[in-house]
Design a protein around this nucleic acid. Structure first.
Lengths: 138, 138
DNA sequence: AATTTAATGTTGTATATACAACTATTACTG
DNA sequence: CAGTAATAGTTGTATATACAACATTAAATT
């Protein structure tokens, strides 16, 4: 056979392929719920972290969310423009009062998105996801 | 308390947050392995599907990989420019012979990336990922 | 304290992704 | 068969992401 590797392998076993598809599906669900509030899933993650920690460096945030520093820098730009976050020094970002209210109010919406995903993946799926997450971030 | 929702909730429970982080981590591993061959994880998924099916419509592909038609259209542009895929009609894309050889040769590299991820998530993690994938795509 | 070194953050460039609006193709219907 | 409706695919625009190169700030060394 000319293409032995192709014959033998099973594309559906690809881990990255599965992760990408899961990501697209979950992002679509979240987008649908969050769009009216003009915030994205990625931005919301940053806001959630900030709402708990209140203040930190970009380096710290970048490590917490596994986001490259340049990507983080650009995502923050949009949140800073909206005054949900501000810079209190060269190496310090802080959530604003507006930011705290925003998170406070978006949590019920976020819960709706979470529930829609839970309906799809179930208790089992949610637990399995945690297993993957724990092992890959260990 | 002023921010009751914030106090109560646990950002680390966010499904989308976990999925995004897992996605960044796996994409980084794949990127590292695939970069020398000038192909991305997303493009490789398309090539993998094409290597098995040989020919299909964009609509079919879009449903198989859960990718919006416009995103697919643009990703295909790059593969068509490289002559790994070509259009055989208005609604038909086909893998080229070059494309088949490309996939045949990249599979061993792909296996290295897969193994690096497997080292992190283990048998358990790989199985858990499949569980999530099956349920969310059901 | 001044200069060098290291760490942190930003900007240039490229791909990925989605929605909305448009174009092109195919399918239906009279 | 012609005209319309439906489906498929492309383009405009915006955010997300990463690497490389640059700029800025902090730390270390003399």
């Amino acid at each position: 056979m000319e293409f032995n590797n192709i014959e033998k392998f099973d594309p559906s076993s690809c881990i990255a392929g599965k992760v990408m598809r899961i990501k697209r599906i979950t992002a679509n669900i979240f987008r649908k719920h969050l769009a009216p509030y003009h915030i994205t899933d990625s931005q919301l993650t940053l806001m959630f972290v900030m709402s708990k920690k209140r203040s930190m460096t970009q380096k710290q945030m970048s490590e917490m969310v596994f986001l490259e520093k340049s990507s983080l820098s650009r995502n923050l730009t949009r949140l800073i423009d909206r005054k949900l976050i501000h810079k209190t020094g060269p190496h310090q970002i802080e959530i604003t009062t507006d930011g705290l209210y925003f998170v406070e109010n978006i949590i019920p919406i976020w819960e709706k998105a979470m529930n829609e995903i839970r309906e799809k993946i179930g208790e089992q799926g949610e637990h399995s996801l945690s297993t993957v997450y724990t092992s890959i971030t260990a």
